[in-house]
Design a protein around this nucleic acid. Structure first.
Lengths: 194, 194
DNA sequence: CGCTTCATTGACACACATCAATGACAGTGG
DNA sequence: CCACTGTCATTGATGTGTGTCAATGAAGCG
């Protein structure tokens, strides 16, 4: 989820700390560059004519946002800190210069973007599965390791639930049911398909 | 959703026609390049140890898939035609050569990928809105034109429904309700927020 | 003209969200 | 060292919002 080292190390980012509710940039502002969340949570919002607010994206630690600003003159939404946050700003000019000079960094960044596109599409396809049971199974299959059976669970289950668009309760119940049926086996930090 | 002209025109794609159910490539095959759906519908699937099949992505006309194969040795899933389909294959070597030679094409492709990432994230965030009413409103705000009020509907409403993860019926009902409340006004090929 | 697809509305059921309660566990501070 | 606090995991009870099935009209099309 972080930038390839070549780019991160090649461009020195500017660190910016934000209080909860503080605005990082607004729609129409000149695009300074893209950002990486170091801590906290940034919310990208767009406003309709009637003042209605809509979240386009919520970025957590390690996630980048506003990458497309590298190729645009201005930002097209507002970025507001949901909670106290720290972000790294990668200046547009410096990044573009680096990309023109260093083809290796360019390829790395492009590879990273291509992988993100695939991951996001997979996540989106997962959401099209209505049934919690089938969605969980699909998630497990997609995340299975080399043996095609074992899935390591790094964080908390509630984060997994959020990642696949279920409430924690729905995930707990589904996993319990799958285990009762013998479809999966649960370990300490892992789940195994059977 | 289609590749920038510079890349499309710079690399001559190989056209491949597939019957329903025919396999384009399988996991483990050497990566030949990425593809663009010209017509039909391609399904990217992964199989678990138990033979369980999971769709990672379904690509429709105008959509690309397997872009990450440019940066990988082999494919990591199977691509099967869901219905009779025609795809354009952009050979890996030719694309990479072009990207190294032509920085303009590289920037175009990267800009396209960055935009896709943002779009996909926005789509994913949209799916986190449970309520059909709120989700439809958020979609409309996000797709509003320059005035922030008018949304042009190109295709059919059922496609819109699929794009936001609702059944056509749910969308019809929601729009009817919003119109009845006076929240939106519906034109021939457009919807206006009020 | 049939035939197909889309848009629309109705009726109904069920799966999941929601609210609630409990136990386990880690961290914290007196 | 032990209450105290907060979070997560888990399970139960309940309601409702969508999905699903179904029927109709309208529009395009060969």
């Amino acid at each position: 989820m972080t930038l390839p080292d070549t780019v991160l190390m090649g461009v020195k980012p500017v660190i910016r700390e934000l209080a909860a509710g503080e605005t990082l940039f607004a729609a129409g502002d000149a695009a300074r560059g893209f950002f990486l969340v170091r801590s906290g949570r940034m919310r990208l919002v767009r406003f309709s004519a009637g003042g209605r607010e809509t979240a386009l994206f919520v970025a957590g630690p390690g996630e980048r946002f506003a990458e497309a600003s590298l190729f645009a003159e201005t930002y097209h939404c507002d970025a507001v800190a949901l909670i106290e946050s720290s972000v790294a700003c990668f200046p547009k000019a410096a990044v573009l210069t680096l990309l023109q000079a260093n083809t290796s960094a360019t390829m790395d960044l492009m590879a990273d973007l291509a992988r993100q596109v695939m991951d996001l599409r997979a996540a989106l396809t997962l959401r099209d599965i209505r049934s919690a049971r089938e969605r969980v199974l699909a998630y497990l299959v997609a995340r299975a390791g080399r043996d095609g059976r074992t899935i390591s669970i790094d964080g908390r289950l509630k984060d997994v639930a959020a990642a696949i668009g279920l409430t924690p309760e729905a995930l707990y119940r589904t996993l319990a049911q799958l285990e009762a049926e013998g479809a999966v086996r649960r370990g300490e930090d892992s789940i195994t398909l059977t």
